[in-house]
Structure formats: structure tokens, C-alpha cells
Computed example of a mutant assay.
Amino acid sequence: MLITFKSKSSPEVTMYQEHAERILDVLNKNHTRGVITAAEAAHALQLLEQEVALSKLHPEVDAAHANHSHAHHLQDEDETAEMADKNHIGFAQRAYPLLEMLRAARDGGDNIVWGI
């Protein structure tokens, strides 16, 4: 399933739900639908930037999270590890578009909504 984030201050950002859930968990937001108000944008940006920094400091945790999310697609454990190593897209890369949207929302005074 896809989640599309919308804001007047930037283009839409669409993510797979499994990737967006980690971001929304960090922000303590509902996975199905919600809003990050313009007033919340600066704090949300700070929280996500901290999580990105932590994921870069501890890439093994980031990789383990990726293995878990891809494991249901693959039968063999060795194949899972090999696939994760070759195609690993970290949390920082996945969060980047939403970080940019949060910056634009903060600067433009706009809300970000999803699931509406």
C-alpha cells in the first residue's frame, strides 16, 4: 500500500506504507491518515533529522530493519542477506523527500497531510 504526503509548499511525496510507518512512528503520527501542522513542522524536522543521524551512526540496525521488511518476500536466508546488502536503501535515503517537504512546509507555513 502507498501513502502520499501532500503540502501546498512542495510536490507530493509517495512512499510504500512499510517505509512511511517508521517515519510516522518517529513523529508519533497515525499511519492511516493525519496532519503535520505548520507549527509542528520544525519539531518534526528535528525528530527526523535525529533519527537519520542515528541510522547513519548505526548502519547495522538500519540494515537489520531492511532485512526484516524484505524477509517476507524471500524464502532463503542467504538470499535475504545478499539481497539486502546489494539493494539496501537506508532510512536516510527513504526519509530525504519527506525531510525536504518538512523544510518547505516549515518555511512556507503550510501543513502536510496524508490519507485524506
Rank of each mutant, 00 (worst) to 15 (best):
D76W: 01
Q75V: 00
Y96C: 02
E79F: 07
H88S: 01
A81I: 03
L98R: 05
I89D: 01
A95Y: 03
G90S: 10
T80N: 09
L99Y: 06
D85A: 15
D76N: 11
G90C: 11
F91M: 01
G90Y: 04
M83A: 12
L99G: 03
D85M: 10
H68Y: 00
A92H: 06
L99T: 03
I89S: 05
A84N: 13
A71T: 02
N87C: 10
H88M: 06
P97A: 05
R94T: 15
D76G: 05
A84S: 15
Q93H: 10
L98N: 05
H70M: 13
H68D: 01
L98K: 10
A92G: 09
E77C: 00
H73G: 13
L74S: 09
T80A: 10
P97K: 04
I89Y: 01
H73I: 15
E79L: 06
E77Y: 01
H72Y: 14
A95Q: 05
R94K: 14
E77D: 07
Y96L: 06
A92S: 13
Q93D: 14
I89L: 08
E82P: 00
H88E: 01
A71F: 02
L74P: 03
Q93Y: 06
I89R: 05
H72N: 07
F91G: 01
A81Q: 09
M83S: 14
G90W: 02
Y96T: 08
D78S: 09
A71K: 04
H73Q: 13
A71Q: 07
H73P: 05
L99F: 07
F91I: 03
H70G: 04
A81K: 12
Q93L: 14
T80W: 09
T80H: 09
R94M: 13
D85K: 15
P97Q: 09
A84D: 12
A81T: 05
H73M: 15
P97F: 10
D78I: 04
A84I: 13
H73L: 15
S69L: 11
H70N: 14
E82V: 08
G90I: 13
L99A: 03
T80G: 04
I89E: 07
L99V: 08
M83I: 11
H72P: 00
Q75N: 10
D78T: 06
L74K: 09
N87Q: 13
S69Y: 05
L98H: 10
H88R: 08
L99W: 03
E82H: 12
F91W: 00
E77Q: 10
G90V: 10
P97Y: 06
H72T: 11
M83D: 10
H68K: 07
G90R: 01
A95R: 02
G90P: 02
E82Y: 09
T80Y: 06
K86T: 12
H70R: 13
H68W: 04
L99P: 02
P97I: 07
L74F: 15
A84V: 15
Q93M: 07
P97G: 02
H70L: 10
E77R: 02
D78K: 04
D78E: 08
D76P: 03
A81D: 07
E79S: 06
L74M: 15
L99E: 05
S69R: 11
M83C: 08
